[in-house]
Design a protein around this nucleic acid. Sequence first.
DNA 1: TCCGCAGTCTTGATTCATTCAAGAAAAGGT
DNA 2: ACCTTTTCTTGAATGAATCAAGACTGCGGA
Lengths: 137, 137
Amino acid sequence: MHPLDAESMLRDAQLRVTRQRVAVLEAVARAPHLDTESVIAAVRAEVGSVSHQAVYDVLRALTEAGLLRRIQPSGSVARYEARVGDNHHHVVCRGCGSIADVDCATGAAPCLTASDDHGYAIDEAEVVYWGTCPTCS
Amino acid sequence: MHPLDAESMLRDAQLRVTRQRVAVLEAVARAPHLDTESVIAAVRAEVGSVSHQAVYDVLRALTEAGLLRRIQPSGSVARYEARVGDNHHHVVCRGCGSIADVDCATGAAPCLTASDDHGYAIDEAEVVYWGTCPTCS
DNA sequence: TCCGCAGTCTTGATTCATTCAAGAAAAGGT
DNA sequence: ACCTTTTCTTGAATGAATCAAGACTGCGGA
């Protein structure tokens, strides 16, 4: 991802282009499933210094704009990934907490069909596979 | 659920029977998807007083013993339910955070098949359906 | 029935991710 | 270049969850 890409993505999303936002977007695109602390570290390596709060704000803004996706498996802090818009899920290791992407087994918008939706208007199905990663086995 | 049921469930799980544990188990069985604060309130109504810590300990012990299941949708605190051992999932309302049970659409152990497991040994598939409940619509 | 010990509960403090608040800085249209 | 709005900085606060040490109690054995 070139600098320009991040910039135009931000502009297309009606967001102001700041060094912090570009750095956050690039950091998450480079290393998926980053937690907030890691994003802060990555951004600091890039732009010198950023406040805790700025990164939280940026992560929220980008997530609301649909440029990032927030995931948070039980027992983990919030993590972010730049792969958005497709229907993919995650495998989480019970041992080390590592995460890997998994394409949805049932096709494009598969899991959206619940057996009984209890009157809820369902718009997303999130799947988390729990298991043990190769390293922890 | 009669008092005796909770007691024997605890004994069968090799756990000591205490008033606190019985009260926690009954409270969660009575009202599913309770968060920890609500469990504390319910237990206090039952046994007079309990420490914060005791309830946390009990919830963990019962969860590890398989008598309770812990669920934690993104952005929510930990919640517990007594319905264990079956393969059921949840619908969560984006508006009010309410939760309802959903039987797995694909059968007994359905979602366990990931398209590519990346070498992970998968033992559970957790599905969260996100949407809007009838009240919030 | 009584004793003892391992497992549990109480009390009180602590951690840490996340949020709140107010003012300073910067983006971008005019 | 200016002005307005958004964003960032600084510093404090919130709140779920955990840690630690001592008191209590379930329950198996004497």
